[in-house]
Design a binder for these strands. Sequence first.
RNA 1: GGGAGCAUAGCUCAGCUGGUUUAGAGCAUCUGCCUUACAAGCAGAGGGUCCGCGGUUCGAACCCGUGUGCUCCCACCA
Length: 721
Amino acid sequence: MELSKNYIPASVEEKWYKHWLSKNYFSSEPDGRTPFTIVIPPPNVTGVLHMGHTLNETVQDILVRKARMSGFNACWVPGSDHASIATEAKVVEMLKREKGIDKDSLSREEFLNYAFEWKEKYGNIIYNQIAKLGCSVDWKRATFTMDDHYYKSVIKVFVDLYNQGLIYRGARMINWDPEARTALSDEEVDYKDVTGKLYFIKYKIENTEKTPGLEDHIVIATQRPETIMGDTAVCANPTDSRYSGLKGKKVFVPLINRAVPVIFDDYVDKEFGTGILKITPAHDINDYNIGLKFDLPVIETLNDDGTLSKAAQIHVGEDRFEARKKIVEELREQGLLVKEEEYTTRLGYSQRTNAVAEPKISTQWFLKMKELAPPALEAVMSGNIKIHPSERFDATYKYWLENLKDWCISRQLWWGQQIPAWYDRDGNLYVAENEEEANTIFREKYSASRDATFRQQKLRRDEDVLDTWFSSWLWPIEVFKGISQPGNKDINYYYPGSVLVTGQDIIFFWVARMIMSGMKFMGEKPFSDVYFTGMVRDKLGRKMSKQLGNSPDLLHLIHEYGADAVRFGIMISSPAGNDLLFDEGSLEQGKFFNNKLWNALKLIKMWHGKSEEEAQSEDIKKITQAAGSDHNTFAIQWFQNRLNEVNLEVDNLMNEFRLSEALKTIYSLIWDDFCSWYLEWIKPEFGKAIDKKVYQASIKFFEEVLQLLHPFMPFITEEIY
RNA sequence: GGGAGCAUAGCUCAGCUGGUUUAGAGCAUCUGCCUUACAAGCAGAGGGUCCGCGGUUCGAACCCGUGUGCUCCCACCA
C-alpha cells in the first residue's frame, strides 16, 4: 500500500468513527468488570458547542478511553439539556424574527411544538459535533432532560419533596426578569458595574412651620427616581442628630404627594448620600427587610414587563427607564431635584436575556436548602468526593453551602417540566404526580363539607415550569433511570459515577446540587472526583461567548486541523482549573505531530518488505532483555527502559488528573526519544535490509507508544495501528 | 466590602511537596540544509534581573512577608 506524503485526517476520521460504532466499542452493559462511569454535562440545546465544551468533552474522552483500555467497563453517557429559560428565549426570538410570530399569540401547546422542533434541529447539531470530536460515548444511552421518564422523575421528586415539607409556595422577594417575564434564581443574575446617576430629591416635611431650625424639606439620594411612588417611609439613623427633629413626622413623596412616616433604623449609613433613605419595600431587598421590620405597606409600582403599574399613579404603562427620564424632568421643573451625581453601582442582569433584573415580591415555589446542604458539604470536606484542583475550589464550595438561601424553583415559562400543582376555586393547593391524583385528594378533602358542584369543579393547574437545574440536578441518577425505575440493574451497577468533568462556572448551579440530590435520593455521592476545567478565553483574555462571537467554530477547526489536532491543541496547555487563552498555534502543533507519527509509520513500513520472510515467531522480550554488544541491541534496551519509565509516569499523572502533562510526556517520548533518537539510531543504511529482530522490536515499540497516545488522539493512532 | 487565582523567552504556556535545570516546550526570529520517514522536517543560533522589594535557607522561579498589575467568585449600602 502506498502511503500519502502527508497525513490527511479527514480521510480517516469518519471511517474510524463509523467503525467503532459498528463494532459497538462505546457501548457498555453491566458485567463482572469494575465500571468506570462518566455522565456528560449535557450541553444546552440552544446552539452549538464552543471551545469550553470541546475542552470538557476531550478531557472526558481521554479518561474514558484510558479506563476502557485499562480493563474497566467504561460507560460515558451523552445527552442534552432542555435549558428552560435559555431555550425558550431563543425560540421566542426565532419565532419573532423568522415567522413574525409573537409568543403571546400562541397557545402553550403550539409554542411547545415549535420548541420541540427547535430541539430536534439543534440537539442533532450538538450530537454531530460530539461525534466529530471522536467522543466515545454510549449513544444508545443518550438522554434528554425532557425525555418521558426524565420528565416524570422530576415531577415525582417535586411531589416527594413537597410531601416532606421541603418544597413550599410563598411570596418572597425574588429576582425578576422583565423581558422573559419570569422569576430567576439568585444564581441566574450576573452583576456588572455600571455608571449611573444618583439623584438628590426634595421630600417636603409636613407642618414645617412647627419645626423650628429645620428646613421645609429633606433631601434623599436615589438611583431609581421612578420608584419613589412606591415609597412607604423614609428612614434615618437613630443616632443622626440632623434628623432627630423628624421623629413622629411625615414627609410627602414628590409628584404624588403621599404622606409617609419617618422611621429610624441603624441600617442607614449616616455617611452615605444625605444620610436618609427612602424605603420602597416592593422594589428593593433591603427596603423589603426594613419594611418587614416596621410593618410597612408594600406598593408595587411596576408590572411584570417592567412598565409602571396603576399603583404608580403616574406614567402608568410606560417602561421603567423611559419613566425615569420623564420623572427626573418633572422633578427638575418643579424644583425638587437638588442635584445629580455620577455614580458607579452594581446592577443585576438576567443571565439569559440581559435585561436588568428587578427585585420583586412574587409568589413562587421554593426548595428549602438547610436540610440538603450538610450531607453535600460533608461529602467534600471528608474527602469522599475529591475536587481537582482542591486547593482552589474547596473553600468556594464550603462558603456557598454554608450560606445557602432557599432555591426559587418556579419559572413563568412554558418550556420545561410543568409544576404538578392544582388549585380549586378557593385557591387551595393540591400537589400530586398527575391530575387524577390531585382530583382524588381534592374530593377526599371535601367529601362531606361542600356541595356537589364545588366538588365536581375542574381544578386549575399551575402554569409555571421548573427551573432547568431542578431537572439537571438529577442527571447522574436519572440517566440510569435511578428515579423512574429505582434499583434497576444499570443504576445499581453504574452509580456512583467516577468523575465529573465540568467548568468551574457551574459549581453552584449544578455540581453542588447534584451532590445534594445524590445524597438525598440515593443516599450516596453521585461521583468520586470532580475535575474542573478552566475557562477557555480568546487571545485578549476574554471569556469565549456567543455574544462576543469570539469562539471559533469547532467543525471548521476540525476541518482545518483534524479532530486529533484539535484535541491535542486544547489539551496540551490546559492544566486542571487553569484558564487557557485559546491559541490556534497549539492546534498547528497537533497537526505537525500527526504528520510526525505518519512519517514514522512510513519509515517502518519501508522496512517491512525487507524483513518480511523472517518476521515471525521471535519473542521480542527475550531479545530486548538479552545482553548484546551490538549497538542496535543497546538502542532497544534503552528505549524499552524509557518506555517503562514513561508508562509509569503517565499512569501517575493521569491518576492525578494532570492530563496536559501526561500528553506532553508522551509527545516528547514519541518525538524526541522514539523518532529522533531510537529510529535514527537503528535506521539501516540506504538499501540495506533491517535486522528482523530490530524490526520486530520497533513494531512493538511503535504499537506501545501509539497505545499510550490513543486516548488523546484516537483517530491517527487507530489508523496507524 | 470579603475570598481565590495568576504574573517565567516577542506570543501561548510547562516547571508537582525548594538542590542534575548553566531555567524548558511549541509558535515566532536568525543561519545552514528540499540528506531516499517527515521542509508540517533536520542541524544549529539568538532571546529570560523566572513582576518589584525584603526575609528564611548552605542553596529559591519554587517557601514566608510586602508592594504592584491582571483575572475570577461571593456580598443588600440608597
